[in-house]
C-alpha cells in the first residue's frame, strides 16, 4: 500500500499515487528544454549564452526576436497542443474508444467549415479578428448537432462516434466545396489555417487563449474523477451512483470547448488530440490526474516541436506546424505500438 498516499486535512481528503508523478516531472523537464530550444533556434540561431542575454534584455534586437516573436508563438503552440490533448483525453474516456478524438467527433470539421466559410465570405469585410470566434462556434455547433443526432433516450458512446464520423464527412464536403469555389488567395489562407499553424502568434493571442484555457482547466479539474468513471460501462456507473447522461453531456461540452478554443487559435491541427492521450496512457498506466497532466504536457511538447520543425527545417520557408505534428507524432506513435506488440 506504500504506493498510495493519502492527503487529509479536516474534511478534505485525496488519494495520491506518487509513482507516476515522477514521470510527469521528467516530461515537464523535457517540455522546459523544448521551450528553450524553440526560443534559441530559428533563422538566427542563438547559443545558450546569447539566449540568456537576449532573455535578459527584452529591448535589444535579439531580445525583441525572442520576446516578441519566438516566445509568444511557442507559448501559443504549447497552449493549443495542451488543450487539444485534454480534449482528446476526455473524449477517449467518454467514448470508451481509443480512436476518439476531436477529429472523429466532428468538432474539428465543424471549426474548419466555419473558418473556411469565414475566410470566403466575411474575412474581406471583417479582417481576421473574429476568426477564433467563428471557429470556436463552429466546433461547439458541430458537437451539439452530433450529440442531438445521437440522442435516443440518452446517448451511447457508439452512436456518438458513428454520428461524429458521419457529420465530419458531411462538413468535410462543405469545406471542400467552399474552398474550390473561392478565389485562390482565400483558398491559400484557408488552407494554411486548415493545416494548423501558430504563425504570427503574438502576446494578445497568448493572453486570450491562456485565459480560456485556464477557465476550461478550472472547470475540468473537479470533473476529472467523473471522467474516470465515464470509462465504466453504464450499468456499473449507475450502480455506484453516477448520473451517466448528465456526466456524459457535461464532459462532451467541456471537450468540445477545449478543442474549440484550440482550433480557434491554432487551426485544425489534426492528430494531437489522438496521439497525445495515447502516449500519456503508455507512460502513465493508471487512469488518474497524473495521466491527464501527462497528456496535456505531451500535447504541448508535440505542437512546440512541430512548430520548431516547421520554421527551421525548410529555411527560409516558414511551414505550418500542422504538417509536422503528424510527421513527428505518427512515427513515434507507430513505434510505440510496434514495441508494445512485440
Amino acid at each position: 500500500m506504500a504506493e498510495v498516499g493519502a492527503l487529509r486535512l479536516g474534511g478534505f481528503s485525496r488519494a495520491v499515487v506518487w509513482r507516476p508523478w515522477r514521470r510527469v516531472l521528467i516530461v515537464l523537464g523535457a517540455a522546459g528544454l523544448t521551450l528553450l530550444a524553440c526560443l534559441a533556434l530559428g533563422r538566427i540561431p542563438l547559443a545558450p549564452g546569447a539566449l540568456a542575454s537576449a532573455l535578459a534584455t527584452p529591448h535589444s534586437d535579439l531580445g525583441l526576436i525572442v520576446w516578441q516573436l519566438r516566445l509568444p508563438r511557442t507559448l501559443l503552440g504549447a497552449l493549443v497542443g495542451g488543450a487539444l490533448a485534454l480534449s482528446g483525453w476526455l473524449l477517449q474516456q467518454v467514448m470508451r474508444n481509443p480512436l476518439a478524438s476531436p477529429d472523429t467527433l466532428g468538432v474539428t470539421s465543424g471549426a474548419s467549415a466555419a473558418a473556411v466559410g469565414y475566410f470566403a465570405f466575411l474575412a474581406a469585410d471583417l479582417g481576421s479578428r473574429w476568426l477564433p470566434l467563428a471557429a470556436a462556434s463552429g466546433a461547439l455547433f458541430a458537437a451539439c448537432v452530433v450529440y442531438l443526432m445521437a440522442w435516443r433516450r440518452g446517448v451511447t458512446p457508439l452512436r456518438l462516434v458513428l454520428t461524429g464520423i458521419g457529420l465530419s464527412a458531411l462538413l468535410g464536403a462543405v469545406t471542400t466545396f467552399v474552398l474550390v469555389s473561392s478565389p485562390l488567395s482565400t483558398t491559400l489562407s484557408a488552407y494554411v489555417w486548415l493545416t494548423g499553424s501558430v504563425y504570427g502568434g503574438n502576446w494578445p493571442d497568448v493572453g486570450q487563449l491562456a485565459l480560456w484555457f485556464a477557465l476550461a482547466v478550472a472547470v475540468m479539474a473537479p470533473l476529472v474523477r467523473f471522467a474516470l468513471l465515464a470509462a465504466l460501462d453504464d450499468a456499473l456507473a449507475v450502480g455506484i451512483g453516477v448520473r451517466v447522461q448528465v456526466v456524459r453531456a457535461a464532459l462532451m461540452i467541456l471537450a468540445a470547448s477545449l478543442a474549440g478554443i484550440a482550433v480557434a487559435w491554432g487551426g485544425a491541427m489534426a492528430f494531437v488530440g489522438l496521439v497525445a492521450p495515447h502516449l500519456a496512457r503508455r507512460l502513465v498506466r493508471a487512469p488518474g490526474a497524473a495521466q491527464v497532466v501527462m497528456a496535456c504536457v505531451l500535447g504541448a511538447c508535440l505542437v512546440m516541436l512541430a512548430d520548431l520543425a516547421g520554421r527551421t527545417l525548410c529555411l527560409p520557408l516558414d511551414l505550418p506546424a500542422g504538417i509536422f505534428v503528424a510527421a513527428i507524432g505518427a512515427p513515434f506513435f507507430l513505434g510505440l505500438l510496434l514495441r508494445q506488440a512485440s
Binding site: A235, L236, V238, G239, G241, P287
Partner: peptide, 16 residues
C-alpha cells in the same frame, strides 16, 4: 447507490 450495489452480467473494467 449508498444502499444498493450492483454487479452486472459482463462488467468491463477501464483499461489499465
Amino acid at each position: 447507490a449508498r444502499v444498493l450495489s450492483l454487479l452486472p452480467q459482463h462488467p468491463v473494467a477501464p483499461e489499465g
